[in-house]
Amino acid sequence: MNTGNFTSQVEASFLFVFVISLVLLIGITVAMIYFIIRYHHTKNDKPKDIHGHLGLEVAWTVIPTILVMGMFYYGLVGYEKMDEIPEDAMKVEVTGRMWEWKFTYENGTTTDTLYVPVDQAVDLSLNSADVIHSFYIPGLKIKRDVVPGLNNHMWFAADQSKRYDVFCAEYCGDEHAYMYTQVVALPRESFDQWYAGSGSAAPQVTSADTAQ
């Protein structure tokens, strides 16, 4: 299911490596089991010293090289997009501190849940008040560290109206596991209404599916 601007590409990268890995893993495992049965000493008591085979060794140097270069390329293409923040992105200041998140919008509104319009690019400006945290939205398959003294940025666009979990992904002390909030992606009109009212009433997600 496609729920963010990066998800499909991350999933494609995963699938690419996963399929190659699965084929190779099955190949290796089946070969081991087959050899053990076929060349068990009860069936084969005359072993043969084979010191190597140039063709094979070249093959299993070259083929993995090609495969991993393919993986590298896949990752690079997907990552380039994560690094380029669109001009028209909506800007939100994010402050992480032990152990809570605070969001400040351009009109001065502050919240502890992040409200965004669906299909809108959002540019998060990440700052930490104390130690390193990491802003992680698993549903959108994106994260970035929140480092004191370093103003990192990350961006995303949610393409479904629902709630997404947000975890702190960099260990930050006692309550690290409770440094939790949500991204709530709203239909454009609901968002505008809420934003104009400066967060007077917390908006609701209409869609039934929450979290994940």
Partner: peptide, 28 residues
């Protein structure tokens, strides 16, 4: 043999984390 099997899975999952956009998701 179980070394080879388990270590291979370790290696393959390592490749997944080497993939830039995928590691952004998997890290930590």
């Amino acid at each position: 043999l179980s070394f080879i099997f388990l270590f291979s899975i370790g290696g393959f999952t390592g490749l997944m984390q080497g993939v830039l956009n995928l590691d952004i998701h998997l890290h930590d």
